[in-house]
Amino acid sequence: MSLIEIRDLHKRFGAVEVLKGIDLDIAAGEVVAIIGKSGSGKSTLLRCMNGLESHEAGSITVGGKVLLQDEEHLRALRLEVGMVFQQFNLFPHLTAGRNVMLSPMVVKGLAEAEAKPIAEKVLARVGLAEKFGSFPDQLSGGQQQRVAIARALAMNPKALLCDEITSALDPELVNEVLAVVKSLAADGMTLAMVTHEMRFARDVCDRVLFMHQGRIHESGRPEDVFASPKTPELQQFLGALS
């Protein structure tokens, strides 16, 4: 059984239908890259999978539980599925360590003494053990994004959603973040990531989804998708990149 099952998902913003029937299965431990032009609905799909956007029709099932749109179900879903954002969205008034500890403490009710070792462990996991006491504005963009990853990991999610998490970074900081993602993938974390890093998608991902006009237009193993795209839209998309 797949960890995440999406069936005929529809989402509209006002008159515009942004997702026009998405069917997607993601197995536990699978690493999926989502690519596509701006406005094709990539972010919207990820945000639906975290309940940050509601959907009008279709279903999202995580770990066998159907996502309903009430508060309780949304929070239950978010315990299973973490999210990392393009703009990091660290809490600026808290240190890196406190950013990581906050949710384990207030959501899971852990005591400070229980949350601290978890925070130290996940910060070490992203290579930032020594930045526990630093505020976000004292960290580089790459470090901030790694703290954001650690913050999501501290909740021990079954899957991690990443929306263009290197797009806001200076080029020289991209690799340190991708290296963290790569090591998570190697450890068996289920990942769905919207990315423009085609080389990374090819090297690390198990499957590539190409979104076009609110649909999954083409998908497959990265070696197939990149070497021999079938649809003209994907051919054009990849052609424009190279």
Partner: peptide, 9 residues
């Protein structure tokens, strides 16, 4: 959004 995605109410 970040705090919501961390399951806070």
């Amino acid at each position: 959004e970040a705090s919501a995605s961390l399951a806070m109410n």
